[in-house]
Design a protein around this nucleic acid. Structure first.
Length: 606
DNA sequence: AGAAAGACTTAGAAGGACGCGC
DNA sequence: GCGCGTCCTTCTAAGTCTTTCT
């Protein structure tokens, strides 16, 4: 009697509170018991702690373990490695590592000294004593036959008839069905990366000191399995054993192994479409929205701190100013020589900034030039507040170019401070917050209700682009850019031609109608009018395309869309302006943002 | 308290799938 | 139906932040 209405009420209330659909009570769950006693159903009572008490991420987890990279297939007899001009038969292990290099021969990596040195060093370690004695100089190694062999193999695979390709796909699908899913708390969930990483040569980004090192093959004995005690424990491949099977439900990974280049741990985890990940994502945006409520206060605070007595406080204030205004990353310390030399806010060095009291009509300009994450260059000239400028000048006093700009600062201390200002606040929340709020503001400013869908999408992309610019999300300009732009321009010109032709014909038709005034010429005028309209529309579309393309040349929109922009802003915008969500989010993105698509109405405000 | 390990998010490149215009 | 460009998916490196160890 009481059951259904209670559920209905909770569904409505919780929906208003922006709970995603899959968190809402379902009729069969008999939530009325909890509802009566706790006001909020138990499974949502502590949703901020992932639904379960104290760090527990799941109650039941079952999976098949990772899918291992296929074993090495030796080269055919007639494919040779040459040393010093003579064919040389290699031992199996040595040959395998040689193929890693051979496959990459047309890649820029293999021209780099560091890559070559690291490769040769690690390769030597694999060689037999005899091989070691012979192969002493990489320059005398000839991998071209190996390269050719794999290149042709690849071409042959591409040229396979449709049916055979389909067959291969079917086999791959079967593997995905078997290994690509797990059962988590009664739901079948997709796994993100269910395959172990195959062996090969390490490809670091930027100027990486370890590029070319041998990435070893992952074996079952390297792998830790994580699952429920009462689940069907995955079987290791025949004749092998897992490193360990553990049942830790305070973590979300299904399997892990330690990688040999940096000694860090790699994990097999769920796909972003999963409930577990979706919930976490949603939580992230809720934290950013809480920042929205206190950001004014925090800004006031760090501005006041520009004049603080303690230098550490001043440094923290300036760092926060950068993190907030420029969306810089926190900038953890990195071990020297282990990775490429990149920095974030706290790890900025003197050499990364230049100060200009006046520059091109602006006052107090700071020029930033440094390599950030993935060795992407951050270059920006920004006018800053006078106090910031004066502080920076002081921080630079008596320092060498290689010294830390913020010598009294660490990400830990910045984050500790932020935590005191708001529960759950860390440096990266500013990136999320500023990205999302920018999207919302830009959409408001740029969207024109009377525009057609194509123009609205352009507005969306522009708003998205503003965010990508803020976050410095870059991409290499597509190699085909110039050419495809020319093609597009040619199309536009042709369309213009067509349009003017159509206009002339319409005029003619009109003249004829005036003259004859019969049904046939009336119809002709109508037809020509329609043609003109169609061409106009097409021309406009092409022009939009060109603008979009040009503005997008070096900017990557995907990263912000996927990681920084609260999807509810997008969903609400789509609903408000009648843009189908499929025009903005592809299938993967819709899966990832299912929670947002489900629960957001057009009035959502970030 | 500081360092190291662990867990999880964010990132661009590469390669494959797919769709569009001829 | 074919070739070409674009979009999407996959891959895994490289960050951030938390937890554990010393």
């Amino acid at each position: 009697m009481f059951k259904l209405p209670a559920i209905r009420i909770y569904r409505i209330v919780l929906a208003k509170l922006n709970f995603p659909e899959w968190l809402l009570p379902r009729a069969h769950e008999r939530l009325w018991v909890c509802a009566v006693h706790t006001r909020v159903p138990f499974r949502f009572a502590r949703w901020e702690e992932e639904n379960y008490e104290d760090g527990v991420k799941w109650k039941f987890l079952e999976h098949k373990g990772p899918y291992f990279a296929p074993p090495y297939e030796p080269l055919p007899e007639d494919v040779n490695f040459y040393y010093d001009g003579k064919p040389m038969k290699l031992s199996l292990a040595t040959e395998e590592v040689a193929t890693f290099y051979g496959k990459m021969l047309d890649h820029e990596y293999t021209t780099k000294k560091v890559f070559q040195m690291n490769f040769f060093h690690d390769w030597t370690e694999i060689m037999t004593e005899e091989e070691k004695k012979v192969i002493t100089d990489l320059d005398k190694c000839d991998f071209t036959q190996i390269h050719k062999y794999y290149f042709e193999k690849n071409e042959a695979r591409k040229a396979l008839p449709k049916e055979e390709k389909q067959l291969l796909k079917l086999e791959a699908d079967k593997i995905t069905q078997e290994y690509g899913y797990c059962t988590l708390d009664g739901h079948r969930e997709k796994i993100g990366n269910f395959k172990t990483e195959p062996p090969g040569l390490f490809r670091g980004r930027g100027d990486h000191p370890k590029m070319g090192m041998l990435k070893k093959r992952i074996m079952p004995k390297d792998v830790i399995i994580n699952c429920s005690k009462e689940s069907k424990i995955p079987e290791p491949p025949e004749g092998h054993k897992w490193k360990e099977v553990r049942c830790d439900n305070t973590v979300t990974w299904l399997a892990s192994w330690t990688e040999n280049i940096q000694g860090s741990i790699k994990y097999i985890m769920l796909n972003p479409s999963s409930k577990l990940k979706g919930e976490k994502d949603w939580q992230k945006y809720e934290v950013a929205r809480r920042l929205k409520d206190v950001v004014d206060k925090i800004r006031k605070q760090y501005r006041a701190d520009f004049k603080a007595r303690e230098m550490k406080t001043r440094q923290r204030a300036v760092a926060l100013y950068f993190i907030d205004k420029l969306a810089l990353r926190a900038g953890n310390e990195k071990e020297e020589g282990e990775t490429a030399d990149t920095v974030g806010c706290c790890s900025l060095r003197v050499e990364h900034i230049k100060l200009y009291p006046k520059l091109a009509g602006q006052e107090y300009v700071v020029e930033f030039d440094f390599l950030g994450k993935d060795s992407i260059r951050y270059y920006n000239k920004v006018p800053v507040l006078k106090e910031v400028f004066k502080n920076l000048n002081r921080f630079l006093e008596n320092k060498e170019p290689g010294d830390d700009l913020f010598d009294r600062l660490s990400t830990t201390s910045v984050n500790k401070h932020l935590q005191d200002l708001m529960d759950g606040l860390t440096a990266k929340v500013f990136r999320t917050y500023n990205a999302s709020i920018t999207l919302q503001e830009q959409l408001k400013a740029l969207t024109n209700e009377d525009d057609n869908v194509a123009a609205k999408i352009l507005s969306y992309n522009r708003a998205n682009r503003a965010v990508a610019l803020l976050c410095n999300h870059q991409r290499a300009p597509p190699k085909t850019y110039e050419k495809s732009m020319q093609t597009l321009q040619a199309k536009i010109d042709a369309k213009k031609e067509q349009l003017s032709e159509a206009k002339t014909e319409l005029k003619k038709a009109k003249a004829e109608l005036k003259e004859k005034d019969d049904e046939k010429s009336r119809k002709e005028v109508e037809r020509k009018k329609k043609l003109r309209e169609r061409l106009k529309e097409q021309l406009m579309k092409l022009k939009l395309q060109a603008t979009d393309k040009e503005e997008n040349k070096q900017i990557a929109l995907g990263t912000s869309k996927l990681n920084y922009l609260d999807p509810r802003i997008t969903v609400a915008w789509c609903k408000k302006f009648g843009v189908p969500i499929e025009k903005i989010y592809n299938k993967t993105q819709r899966d990832k943002f299912a929670w947002a698509i489900d629960m957001t109405d057009e009035n959502f405000e970030f």
